[in-house]
Design a protein around this nucleic acid. Sequence first.
DNA 1: CGTGGGTTTGAAAAACTTCAATTAAAGTGG
DNA 2: CCACTTTAATTGAAGTTTTTCAAACCCACG
Lengths: 234, 234
Amino acid sequence: MRGKSIEAAWRGQAECRNCGIRDLALFSDLREPDFAHIHLPIEEIQFEPGSALYHVGDPGQAVFTVRTGLVKLVRYLADGSQRIVRLLRPGDTAGLEAVLGQEYEHTAIALRGALTCRIPREVVTRLSEETPRMHAQLMQRWQQSVRQADAWLTSLSTGGAKARVARLILLLMEGTGDTECALFGREDMGAMLGVTTETASRIVAEFRREGILSERGPNLYACDVASLQRISGG
Amino acid sequence: MRGKSIEAAWRGQAECRNCGIRDLALFSDLREPDFAHIHLPIEEIQFEPGSALYHVGDPGQAVFTVRTGLVKLVRYLADGSQRIVRLLRPGDTAGLEAVLGQEYEHTAIALRGALTCRIPREVVTRLSEETPRMHAQLMQRWQQSVRQADAWLTSLSTGGAKARVARLILLLMEGTGDTECALFGREDMGAMLGVTTETASRIVAEFRREGILSERGPNLYACDVASLQRISGG
DNA sequence: CGTGGGTTTGAAAAACTTCAATTAAAGTGG
DNA sequence: CCACTTTAATTGAAGTTTTTCAAACCCACG
């Protein structure tokens, strides 16, 4: 089995045809005959919290679909600190640059545990040559990345620190109809927002004192959405 | 002729085959037979400083290749202020989302004058269906956008304001073997760096007093690259 | 020669960082 | 199961940086 089995447990060969999140995933537009072009195994891999799907500079051999959990894309700065440039959620794709035969641009690390499908580069390449549906899907994915990058800049790297934290929390709740929200370590929060760990901590603490966040478990909070929206807008 | 002729002067039909910057541009990989698929006119349009190639929310009807000058991609925030999310230079492509049939994600505004080629959406779509070279090129362009977005975040929205200004200036000089650098209005600088106009102004003024920048003309400076690099790294 | 837009500068307030110390939580190994 | 180590979160206080609000300035233009 794989060398990384301590951190990354191989689960088995993925059955894309019957994938539970197929309508979200990279292969959502494929039709039955297209699957014949998948000539290399797609593996299902479970990454433990903190383990890396790949590292910046590695030759891009595969694309990953996130099935469950959360993955951060990290860039390391000259001074050794890190900046998180994006967050991938179920349905999102990591390492698209592999399709272009390039090295990975980031280090991708699982926050919480993450179940992923590892799709070899050649599979995507071949599919994209064979079916325009795959092509279109790839372009969509690229655009989605750009859009997310822009949103990250304008909403998480703009304005005061309180507004940024508020926007981050709102972003995390987006989609989930819920008003509960699982946060992460303060260091990661800081790296997402471009502020120090302490500032992130202080603001979360302040929100908690003001009742905007109420702890429901370890790093799990119930959120006063209205207040967060007010803060995020100012 | 076009309604926007006051701001945007139509120059004529572009001759892509003999384009001076073709090796940089979207069509760089096309071969002779591919040009037969261009069934709609590609227009050469000159945008005056401050005029818009397109606005956020407009239906994306065309892609623009920047031939000369500089174009900013702007997002407007809830409070009415603006954030510049990217800068396009000669060879870059604006409005790629049009190819996906989507609305423009930004407002694209010419800083300085900019000569562009306006390529109708259908031309790119058709080419991309007909030739894999075009397809590959589009993917490259998308990736380039993502890469630039990430770089923008990590180098222009991270660290202290002095470091950001220094990195912006270095970025502007990148490529041009020169040590001269044309800056823009302080408001635009601020919107690129996520700081106020005043802060941008103060820092440029400070650099000037310290001899790191010396004025050579209106907003044109000779730069002490070594010092800028030192500042950008701290 | 006045006007308007953008730049520069000042001073006080606010926000953030830094560094250091404290507390809390979570493992670890007896 | 408890004491002990470790790691992360929180808090305080001082120091810096940035913003804010105002005013002065400069220059191009009518």
